[in-house]
Design a protein around this nucleic acid. Structure first.
Lengths: 135, 135
DNA sequence: TTCTTGAGTTGTAATCATTACAAGATTGGC
DNA sequence: GCCAATCTTGTAATGATTACAACTCAAGAA
């Protein structure tokens, strides 16, 4: 997706595609390592010297509201962000700190659909442990 | 469980059962609504006027290390705490803010056991939405 | 019993992510 | 081109959590 396509996509999703928002979204597209606000800010400010960290927060919160981005609160520290994709879980390695995506088996998610009388809008599956590289 | 029994249990788990720790653990036994540190502190200080909030943090972190308590980071705000029980998920109502326990179907968890080459030490399933009462 | 030592507790100060707020900039519709 | 609504920006405030150092306590040795 190029800039225009991202703009179109955001527009479709009900997000006014400002320059900053497009850049933040693009950043998430190109950086799948679950960046923090700090990560996003430090990198984007090279391109957009006037960027404010508040704008990064605002953009991300707008995205989350409109369902195009998901927030990952796998530990109690900073939030991490990821493009929204249905049905994918996160694994955090307690040694290197890296967060991996994984695709939980279909059954795991389907079983979570049914919760008597509750309306479910978001599902997160978090695993912690030690990753392949760190063992 | 009475005080002595809690003490014995903690000792078994490798936690030296101080007076404060026993009280914090007992609090979690009696308050299953996923209290915050603030909740615990505000209530326990009535019984233990010298209690420090740092002690609550210290106790909880010790418990977590020894695997007798789990931390719930379902949103980006404060941590919430719960006695450790294998295989139970948490649902947060976005309207009333309450956090419910639920028992995910056995399959959901069993499927999560297998993650090629990774050592898994903790699993959390978080759902969000609107609860029965708030719909 | 008294001493000693290590662990636990306490209070304050620091840290750090996030939000609040108000002023300035920008954009889209008329 | 103009206006109102919306975005962006920077700073200040908030609030959860940790760092740290002094103090207390419990248990074992002499």
């Amino acid at each position: 997706m190029n800039t225009d396509q991202i703009g179109g996509f955001l527009h479709e999703k009900g997000v006014k595609p400002s320059f900053q928002r497009i850049k933040v979204y693009e950043y998430l597209m190109n950086n799948k390592e679950h960046p923090t606000v700090e990560n996003i800010y430090r990198d984007l400010i090279k391109e957009i010297p006037t960027l404010s960290k508040t704008t990064v927060y605002n953009s991300l919160n707008t995205f989350i509201e409109k369902g195009v981005v998901q927030a990952i609160s796998i530990d109690g520290n900073e939030m991490r962000y990821d493009l929204y994709e249905r049905r994918h879980g996160h694994f955090k390695c307690e040694v290197c700190g890296r967060i991996y995506d994984f695709l939980p088996p279909k059954e795991a998610y389907e079983e979570l659909e049914a919760l008597e009388g509750f309306l479910i809008t978001d599902r997160q599956i978090y695993l912690k442990g030690v990753c392949k590289n760190c063992r």
